[in-house]
Nucleic acid binder design. Structure first.
Lengths: 196, 196, 196, 196
DNA sequence: CAGTAAGCGAGACGGTACGTCCTGTCTTAGT
DNA sequence: ACTAAGACAGGACGTACCGTCTCGCTTACTG
């Protein structure tokens, strides 16, 4: 049985220093070149303190960004003008812009890399990062559904996949440009596929 | 000026030994734990010989799997019974099964990891692995298009994304089961989105 | 002012457990590989309890063996048949045998290592371990002196050095065999050097 | 079978840098506080290069001092005025002074520590450091023997032990002062024990 | 006879060093 | 010229301990 340290004795100051250092280092040198040694040194912390509480470099960095995103969780909401097409295009154009933003690239590619190879991290990602965001998106779709703009029997989970996955895949493989036009195209196809 | 080695003098025997060793090691210990040293040792080759011809571990392993897949490139074709729905469901169910196959997992996740972080590898992937396969798929869609089963103005590249990306995303994030039903659902949505 | 803990409150049970654990560990893994952490763990004791009462690993282990040897201090006496040559040969042969005993080796080499590098430990060694034993030996020599078998002006401390140091040095450097013959040779030389 | 690296490929420049760094560090911070990491850093050498050629810190430092002492091996000779008592007193007083010299202490205590616990090192010490020196001393004794000043059947190895070991033991245990008088006393006892 | 201060087991902490592994470069011999 | 072999400087790995530092708990003295 793996022994877990007692969380009650955990030093909050060290935890914060580690997460901060991890974030800084990732943005300075890139995910791949971050080492646990460097995080420990930057945080002014013994390496053991990292190994005591995280299983891997990926887990630390994941936590670092998780903590970041959980901070600004509150004020998330999608526009709801009643016009589902207009609203989705607004949102998808914003998403496309976000994916095209170079500052966004590094950490997210790194994160995705880790998630691909670590099922545990994937589960955490889904539950703590993706799920809350998806829930907000589903709320907007549900509203449209009740307004009769989307098929009543539409599975909203699958719907989100249909809408977002093409964009995601194109971003991963860099297999095409991420433009507002592309966002519109995806919304058009999505609406055609999901209308009553 | 970087000196490029003379490809004419390249030892074919060493090249093969390296690619074989790379393939074996990936399946034995997993992508992350494969090292260039280990490949060299297994192949009975000097490390320099690897560094001379490849830029990174990722490039070697990519080449190793590329060579493998280029071997059986010839006989690829999709069913064309005239019934686009049936044909797509057949293909998508097969694809779903392939993604769910554990033997398929390791190497592909590793490959995807590399592709995410290396634009050069991504380009190679698209051109040498994805493009030929996509062409075959597009041929089937074009046939349906000409039969009036799909919208005439449909962009086939986008179409492929719409069809396959949801599956791909679900596989990456392990965010849902990969079942025949799911394949059917995707085909249904796809056909609804793309019909004339 | 360095604060000294109050010896009155010292837990005898912990003290014993620590000394026992130290002894066990030394004989199990050898002096060099014993750590204070291991002693504490084995003794079921907090590390601080060791640091509170001892200055170093060496001090603990020294104490452990000291306690051991002080236990059987009583019944020590050298043979006195009146024949100093025979008596010394008996004793020296026994000493040679003791040094050649593998079970004796490990701890004593370890102890000597510590003593060489720690003057404080050396002093303790001389006063608490060597002195009592030397006193017994000197008593026998004094008896011989009074019987006119040894020079009246012989310094008994130097005499003991002359008798035992060659053996000790040979043992340290492993520079020659430790045999009964060797013991006899040393006694012969000693007696020649010290007779009236 | 332990694999030994090929000595032919060994870098002489690295070897020298390591031995120099080892010597410097020992005299700067003392044997116990020297680490292999520090030697490597000071020498501008990878740790692996040290581990490749030496088994332990002790072995490196031993080699460092060995190399040093082998440098000035040539001009060693003991005085031979024909008066063995005067000559030995000269030599022993010098030896006593050497042992009492604080600059001499550190490294030699450290060396002795290592030798005690490592039979391999002890063998090297005897063969490469002690033996040549002992040979010179034996030569002087042999000369006295031939002049009829020492017993003809005296074993010169044992003789050296008788002469030097008491001093050595007193130095190790710090069990008495190292003075010229003490040197004289030892010579007197030695000559009494070994005269014809 | 409570109150309090010590010693105690436990173990997290900032650190240092360990010995191993691998990287990418360089050198030597052998085709 | 290219190769197999492998030494090299460098640096990160994950582990083991160091000696210090809280934590609550128990125990024994004291007011």
């Amino acid at each position: 049985m793996p022994k877990h340290p007692d969380p009650a004795r955990r030093s909050e100051r060290s935890r914060q220093a580690i997460l901060d250092a991890a974030r800084e280092l990732v943005s300075e040198v890139g995910y791949a070149k971050v080492s646990i040694e460097a995080i420990a040194a930057r945080a002014g912390v013994g390496k053991q303190t990292i190994y005591r509480w995280w299983r891997s470099k990926g887990a630390v960095i994941f936590d670092a960004f998780l903590a970041l995103s959980e901070a600004d969780e509150g004020g998330m909401a999608l526009p709801d003008t009643g016009d589902i097409e207009a609203d989705l295009k607004t949102v998808m154009r914003a998403t496309v812009a976000e994916f095209a933003d170079p500052a966004f690239e590094g950490p997210i590619r790194a994160l995705t890399t880790e998630i691909i190879n670590d099922p545990g991290l994937a589960a955490q990602y889904r539950e703590r990062l993706a799920a809350p965001v998806d829930e907000v998106k589903k709320a907007r779709l549900r509203s449209a559904q009740q307004a009769g703009q989307l098929a009543a029997d539409l599975d909203l989970g699958v719907a989100l996949e249909l809408l977002y996955a093409p964009l995601f895949q194109r971003w991963i493989y860099r297999s095409g440009p991420l433009t507002p036009d592309y966002a519109d195209t995806l919304v058009d196809l999505f609406l055609k596929a999901t209308r009553p």
